[in-house]
Design a protein around this nucleic acid. Structure first.
Lengths: 393, 393
DNA sequence: TGAAGATGCCGGAACGTTCCGGCGTCGCTA
DNA sequence: TAGCGACGCCGGAACGTTCCGGCATCTTCA
């Protein structure tokens, strides 16, 4: 490991108080600066390269400012009692030296880990929505000084002695997922994205889109384009979440309000293209009265488009098609497909923000904090709004 | 033996009230064991719940094993000189107590940050390939005990005084990207994914797919399906990477070897669907002899499919279509599109693995380590291999 | 039978931060 | 003028880990 020659000698005798500190104050600046603190001149300031070599610590800042490390720490953290003058000077020195607190030391001292975990249900780890969401979380968490640890059901460490995180975000908690129950009882604050339908310990925070309203919005949009009997394809199997259930419930309520017979099919979220084909074919065959199709699972709308076309249906004209999950490919295909855009990036960012707030508030509040994330409807040609192409042969 | 309660009491001459805090902290072993180390009986061991409360440290392990913390540390890390018997006992105790080293303390001591950075070019941060890649990195890095920090050109901290990472992965370094140059000279080991075509400091490791071979494979595949004159759409503008350049060069070499005139169009990687339409139309109009089209930018093949169809071309029959980037939607569309699959998840994992090796090797090797990542060709109906549908009307 | 080396183990310092308790010095009031 | 609180600042311990140097004890060989 290559001991860096300078390992300081042991045995610090007990010596007089501050006197020798005062004498050498300001001497031996950490990096290698000259002596003159008056080098504020040239605006060059090439970013301190800072190789793996010794980096500037808070004692360096304190020495240069002529104060103790306690005062420096207090000034920079806003705690304690420090005069405005001193604080300003310390801040200036810190900025000039390029001081950046050592997170490892800080976390050690605070007995915090400095990381949050994101738990993703297995089946969907690969889909675009979840990745975008995770990126949103990562970016926002980073802004709050938190690292992100991805947790999958299989990835080691879930049942391990201890999860090294300060808090958890659970995305779309699956009904009766034992891991979810474990995590909720794990002792760290949890934010669920989508409501947790279940018993046991409750999350400290809940962030959710208003799926009821969004779904109604979508169904009304279809109605305004002439559809009277839309069908629905939802996730099923072991992917029962608040999202999928709310979707189905809202749809059924809409149907009963409009006096029509619901036409629903369930399909696994990780179903093969062939399976999706079969489901769509089956649904269309058994319900010839359908004049619209709403697809919930990520990617299913795109596949349905091909299937429907091969059935001879004209999507966007006599048959409308919409997706409950937005993705880049939905506007790339032909015709582009109308979709509910949950804006996963911001969604994730909001989740991270909520968790960060909870972590810093730190009071063991009893009532979970609930927030609503607005979704948007992206209307495209597949629901007949406009011609598929700008007509330019 | 067994240093009893040896918390070194504060050496202040006059022991004021501060002293009993320290002493009563040291008492009361973490879980609640008595003194007897012979209680290895009941195998119950319900996973240590480990609330936010005190967690088990290496001194706890040492105390229970009747050794010093040095010996415990040595035994668990494999360093130092420890007898086999003692080592086994310590390991057993550690496992029983559910000991998990505190990463913050470890990083503090080792003066490592415990994180690696991943730099993604801006324009493509949203695409599926880059996300999959990032997930691959995250998973593998986590396995190596490293956190992942995402770096985008805009995200704060690039030019900041100092990047708090132990190493960097640069994905598809863009030619003449000033940030890339900065990062390469930043003092920490760097792994580039894709060769770095440029001057200045070189990366310590390079991971790259063999784009020459893969591209030739794709072109030969098209030839075997009857194509004699394929066209190419590549990224351009400020997205000149080793990947895009190699693609183009290999294509042109193939053309000259086959005595045909290259048909290439450049397009921005973040181009709008309409722009893509226009480019495809333009290319097909100006080169009526094209019987195949290879699309490089992520998502462009899907859009091209729609465009070509609206031009009346029969994709998979008289016109072949292939993508240089695989994605879920390419097998969901109709017909499914042949693609080069770089398997971004594994790709990312390999990059993280290479970086982890470099970090632990720690010797400032002069020659960069180069590795090759194998890509795969996914042949689908768009290049005429098989009927688009299993023919079942 | 020593001396020299190998073996097994330990004490304690140090990484950089935060924070508790304390100490001197004001200014104000009784 | 003594008392007293507020103010501004500081010393030092502690978080949990690694590792250097050292001290016994045991083995081996001259």
């Amino acid at each position: 490991m290559k001991n860096v020659e300078g390992r300081p000698k042991p045995r610090t005798g007990e010596q007089g108080p501050g006197e020798q500190r005062a004498s050498e104050r300001g001497a031996a600046p950490p990096p290698s600066e000259g002596a003159s603190p008056s080098e504020g001149a040239s605006g060059a300031s090439s970013a301190p390269v800072a190789g793996p070599g010794r980096s500037v610590t808070i004692v360096d800042v304190a020495r240069h400012a002529g104060v103790s490390k306690t005062t420096a720490s207090d000034a920079l953290s806003g705690a304690g009692r420090v005069s405005a003058r001193t604080r300003a000077r310390i801040e200036e020195v810190a900025a000039r030296l390029g001081y950046h607190p050592n997170t490892a030391a800080r976390h050690l001292r605070n007995s915090r880990v400095g990381a949050v975990g994101l738990y993703l249900p297995r089946q969907v780890m690969g889909t675009g929505f979840y990745m975008e969401f995770a990126f949103g979380v990562a970016e926002r968490a980073r802004a709050a000084g938190l690292d992100l640890t991805l947790l999958g059901p299989d990835s080691s460490g879930i049942k391990a002695p201890r999860l090294r995180v300060d808090g958890l975000i659970i995305l779309d908690p699956i009904l009766d997922d034992p891991v979810v129950a474990d995590l909720l009882g794990g002792g760290v604050p949890v934010v669920t994205v989508g409501h947790h339908r279940g018993s046991g310990p409750m999350p400290r925070g809940v962030l959710s889109a208003d799926h009821v309203e969004t779904t109604n919005l979508l169904l009304e949009h279809l109605g305004s384009r002439g559809s009277t009997m839309p069908g629905l394809i939802v996730p099923d199997g072991d992917f029962l979440t608040d999202w999928s259930l709310t979707l189905q419930e809202t749809y059924e309520r809409w149907c009963s309000a409009h006096r029509v017979e619901p036409a629903t099919r369930g399909v696994a979220v990780d179903a093969s293209p062939e399976t999706l084909d079969a489901v769509v074919r089956d649904l269309m065959a058994s319900r010839p009265d359908l004049d619209a199709l709403v697809c919930a699972p990520d990617g299913s709308a795109l596949r349905a488009l091909g299937t429907l076309r091969s059935l001879g249906r004209r999507v966007g004209e006599e048959l409308l098609l919409a997706s409950c999950v937005a993705s880049q490919s939905l506007e790339m295909c032909d015709p582009p497909i109308t979709a509910v855009d949950l804006r996963p990036r911001v969604y994730g960012a909001s989740a991270a923000e909520l968790l960060a707030e909870i972590l810093s508030a730190d009071g063991a509040g009893d009532e979970p904090i609930t927030r609503v994330h607005p979704a948007e409807l992206r209307v495209r040609a597949s629901t007949g709004s406009e011609p598929a192409e700008p007509a330019r042969p």
